[in-house]
Each structure stands twice: as C-alpha cells, then as structure tokens.
Nucleic acid binder design. Structure first.
Lengths: 138, 138
DNA sequence: CAGCATCCTGTTTGATACTG
DNA sequence: CAGTATCAAACAGGATGCTG
C-alpha cells in the first residue's frame, strides 16, 4: 500500500486557485482542486452561512463585514461553478439575488463541518503546541 | 440558532497565512486558522504522506517532486509548530532528519481524510457542474 | 440591489546559490 | 543530507468608481 493509495501525491504545475474563472480546467488531482477552492479566504465562511439557510447578496455582505464586494462576488461565483451553491435572481425592482446551498453543497458540508468541529475542539491543543514550539526556538 | 452557532463568522483583518512563523499569534477564529494552514499549497500533501509512515526530508522531496526545498522546509516547520508532526534528528554523518505524525496530527487527519475522500468520490459531479456552468456562460 | 472593470498592494511561492 | 539566505515572479485580495 503506497502513499498514493489515498490520494494522488503527484503535484501539478497548475496554479493553486482559479484566476480567470471561465478558463480553468479541472486539475488532475481532485484533492488539490478542492483544497485550493476551500483554502480561499472566504469560501468556508460563505459555505457555513449558506449551510444554515439561503441568503441574499447584501445579507451575506453584512454577515461577513470585511469581505470586499469584489471577493464576495468572485467567491460566490466559484462556489456556484463547482455546484455547491445555486443562484436565483428575483425580478424585483431593484433586483434581488438569493444564494442557497445545493445537495452537492450539503454533501460537501458534512465532512467539512467535521473538520471545522475538530478545529474548534482542538484549538487549545494547537495553541499549546505553538507556544511550546516558539519557546524552544528562543 | 444563529449562523454563528457552528463557527464564529466574524472575519479578521489578520493575514490569511503566517509570514514570520515565530511572530504569528493565534487568530481569533480557530476555523480560519486551520483553513489557512491546510489551505496552503503543500500542507495536505505532506500530511497525507506522513499519515502513511514517517519519512525523511529527502524522501518527502522525492515523493512531491515539484516542491521547492524552501517550501518543503517551511511547510514542515509550520506543521511541526502546530503540533501535527514531530521532527527527529539522527546524529549520523551526514545528518538525517525524520518527520512523523503526532497523535494530534492523526486526530486531525481523520476528519481531513473524510473530506479528501469526498473530493475523490465527487470529482465527477464537480466536473459536470463546472462544464454546465461554463456552458451557460457562453 | 447586485454587480463589473480597473488599478494597485502585500503575500505566497519559486529559483538559485551557499553551508554545517 | 538537510537545510538557510536572497532575489524575483506570480497570485490573491483590497480600494475605488461605474452600471442596469
């Protein structure tokens, strides 16, 4: 059983995150691909919000006060493109747009939430490890 | 049950990833903190390798051919600082250094592996979602 | 309201050369 | 072998102004 049993350890020359959202092809490692998406500064935050219930653009903006409009739009597009969230435009005046998690998004959110729970449950252990490491480095 | 039940949605002004490894204080959101660490380009790859068995520096380098020496060292240090992996120096000549996962690292790896499994199991669904999205955008 | 286009900055990463 | 140091490039993200 080699180390690549769980995942393809071959790395790629491809950039870690999408730049031009419409030009990006699927990288040859799904793990790298997911991590690069989730690893963005705002993706997890938005997934957590939308896992609770649907929200409109402006609501999300207020929930995450220091996200820029640019990054909110961009991150929502990426999540939509990957199929994790859906986008519905209501033809009101002015228009309102609602985002909601898809079934695929919810299925992703299950293991993701477990990981986030781990982060909270073990934050103290990590804090201690860091303090110890920094000490020993003088 | 508010949206912040699962995790603190407050975002921070802190940079996403550590720059000077010894200067970084724990951010006020453990989730942001974990995501910023494993969201790095190489962390997950190295955790997967070390979840299998201990490896030496050079072995890891050969397993992940296109990681630079600089990033291998830096990422290993970060993982060590957070307490996920341990580092042991053998006083041979020339010296050899072995890295191995700690108990904390293994406990992290459990939910992490679930997430990675999801990525592999659903890569086709994501690929389809992307193709559909790109289509509809013309 | 919900964006988009442009410019600009700091951070992350890579390349290369050198060392105990 | 297992690093460190320095420089340069690429990228993610922020700020601002404009639009249907």
């Amino acid at each position: 059983m080699s180390a690549s049993t769980v995942v393809n350890l071959r790395s790629t020359k491809a950039p870690l995150r999408a730049v031009d959202i419409s030009k990006v092809t699927f990288t040859d490692c799904p793990v790298r691909d997911l991590i690069s998406q989730i690893g963005g500064k705002w993706s997890v935050l938005l997934l957590e919000a939308l896992a609770q219930r649907p929200y409109r653009f402006g609501e999300l903006r207020r929930m995450v006060p220091d996200i820029s409009q640019r990054m909110l739009t961009q991150t929502l597009r990426e999540l939509q493109r990957d199929g994790y969230i859906g986008r519905e435009v209501f033809p009101t005046k002015p228009p309102s747009v609602e985002y909601r998690m898809t079934d695929l998004g919810y299925s992703l959110y299950e293991p993701l939430a477990q990981l986030l729970n781990w982060a909270e449950a073990n934050q103290e252990a990590v804090r201690v490890a860091r303090a110890h490491f920094d000490q020993s480095q003088d």
